[in-house]
Design a protein around this nucleic acid. Structure first.
Length: 283
DNA sequence: AATCGGCCCAACCGCAGAAAT
DNA sequence: TATTTCTGCGGTTGGGCCGAT
């Protein structure tokens, strides 16, 4: 079904908002709220479409919006979360009170992306982390893409160049799903997961010809992460948040990943006793 | 002073999914 | 269950600003 964009309705104003329009919108929302965006402009007496009103309110007029430059902490949080979540700006914004997805998106495209590109080019290209080493050890002319079939296909063997001291990554079939066990007896479990996700970003952005479904496709559905060493259980699934299969809401997903990688950001390896086996079930 | 080009950011567009009917 | 309507998201655009020439 294709819907006609509401802004194509005749007589509706587009473009920059005037102070008077802002005033009307703020005043109306303060009085009556915004239960129905589509009806709001008509009721408020604005010659705008509901979508335009919603955008103006959520990105600019909302009282809890924080204006001004991003702090160093915010910047780091964005970088960290973008590594995990990709361009899921709304999810990133949910972790930065007072910042909008649009603002973060703009900040990323105009500042951070360039900044990271600059720093990446100056960095040593050699792999230094376990998963990078796995990728490197199995690399072909397609480079890091080799890590993808390596992990996606079941019954693969451990890369010979990876020692037990570094990490063990293997897959086992379970419930007709691809299951990846990440046993990291000597390293940081969070660290390992993060490196997998880093690999995902590289895989998904460089994928061109492979017929194997990407291991970490942007639409990846991680539905279960169980930690053997603790009682923590987390679930992720794209779809309804009231799914009753023990699946959590999107916000909880974000909370989990945020907390996980904030911890991972602590570069100091954790004691061995804190580690365990993390299982990612992929659909 | 005028022009040009790059940067920034508010706003728009189209799509997908949720909610309502 | 199918269809329609509404909302939210991410990508993109275009105009204003500002520094360089």
């Amino acid at each position: 079904m294709v819907r006609t964009p509401c802004c194509e309705e005749m007589g509706l104003k587009k473009g920059p908002w005037t102070p008077e329009e802002d005033r009307i919108l703020i005043s109306y929302i303060q009085q009556f709220g915004h239960a129905n965006w589509r009806a709001l402009p008509r009721q408020a007496g604005l010659l705008r479409c509901g979508k335009s009103c919603r955008l103006r309110w959520t990105n600019y007029l909302r009282p809890d919006i924080k204006r001004g430059n991003f702090s160093k902490e915010e910047e780091e949080t964005i970088i960290k979360l973008h590594q995990i979540l990709g361009n899921r700006w709304s999810s990133i914004a949910a972790k930065l009170p007072g910042r909008t997805d649009n603002e973060i998106k703009n900040f990323w495209h105009t500042r951070l992306k360039k900044k990271l590109q600059r720093s990446n080019t100056s960095m040593n290209n050699s792999a230094s982390t376990p998963v990078q080493k796995i990728a490197q050890s199995t690399s072909t002319s397609t480079g890091i893409m080799a890590v993808q079939p390596q992990i996606v296909m079941s019954n693969i063997e451990e890369p010979s160049s990876i020692t037990k001291e570094e990490a063990t990554v293997r897959t086992v079939p379970r419930s007709s799903r691809n299951v990846i066990n990440i046993d990291n007896d000597y390293g940081n479990k969070y660290f390992m997961l993060k490196e997998c996700l880093d690999a995902k970003i590289k895989c998904s952005t460089t994928s061109t010809t492979t017929t194997t479904p990407p291991l970490f496709d942007p639409k990846l559905q991680i539905i279960s992460l169980n930690s053997k060493s603790s009682t923590d259980q987390y679930s992720m699934k794209k779809g309804s948040s009231n799914d009753n299969n023990g699946l959590t809401s999107k916000n909880e997903d974000m909370d989990f990943w945020y907390n996980l990688f904030v911890k991972a950001g602590e570069s100091t390896p954790r004691p061995v006793k804190d580690f365990g086996c993390a299982t990612l079930r992929l659909e």
